[in-house]
């Protein structure tokens, strides 16, 4: 069983004190690197095309939690835009909203994606570490104070997440 409560250092993708909206898949993982298919080689290109965040791959650590703004991952269907964060050890992505295909790709890859319901971005930005209860849909600081609420994981998301990815789950469901 994978943890249903995830704890980690929070990496807030912000500019002038607010989350950056509309970060598209070309800013996350530029199309000039699409030929890369090995996950371990993808990490070094994460946010390679997002102004001010080019050193992100050297600052991210295993176990980090990414916090982003609205419409994160809009644009193309490239899986690398999800996998590059997995390569760096990011365990979970929290955002106000996501591009539809990005969301599908992340859920299928077993990457927990959290959509925020009700929050004050200042409270969230102030947290250097976060604790997320996937089942209850609560985001807390390390003192267990609630800082935001999210939609609890659906059965589908939990099934895929617990099995690693969509295909591992598929093997199990059809024996």
């Amino acid at each position: 069983m994978k943890d249903k409560i995830i704890k980690g250092r929070a990496l807030h993708i912000i500019e002038n004190g607010t989350y950056i909206d509309d970060i598209d898949t070309d800013m996350i993982f530029h199309n000039s690197f699409l030929a890369i298919t090995e996950i371990e080689k993808m990490g070094q290109h994460a946010f390679g095309n997002l102004d001010g965040w080019k050193d992100f791959p050297s600052t991210a650590k295993k176990g980090d939690v990414l916090v982003v703004g609205k419409n994160f991952g809009a644009g193309s269907s490239r899986q690398q835009a999800v996998d590059c964060f997995t390569a760096l050890g990011v365990t979970l992505i929290i955002g106000e909203s996501f591009g539809a295909i990005y969301k599908r790709n992340a859920i299928n890859a077993g990457v927990p994606l959290i959509e925020l319901k009700d929050f004050n971005s200042k409270d969230l930005i102030g947290c250097s570490e976060l604790k997320i209860d996937l089942e209850k849909g609560i985001i807390m600081d390390l003192q267990d104070n609630k800082v935001a609420e999210c939609k609890p994981f659906s059965k589908v998301q939990m099934d895929i997440y617990q099995n690693g990815n969509l295909f591992e789950y598929g093997k199990k469901m059809r024996g």
């Binding site: 599908r104 790709n105 299928n108 589908v156 895929i160 969509l166 295909f167 598929g170 469901m173 059809r174």
Partner: peptide, 16 residues
Amino acid sequence: MGDQDIAFSFKTGVNW
């Protein structure tokens, strides 16, 4: 849907 999703449904008959 993408080619991974379609393969999954070829195999299982379901999708989310």
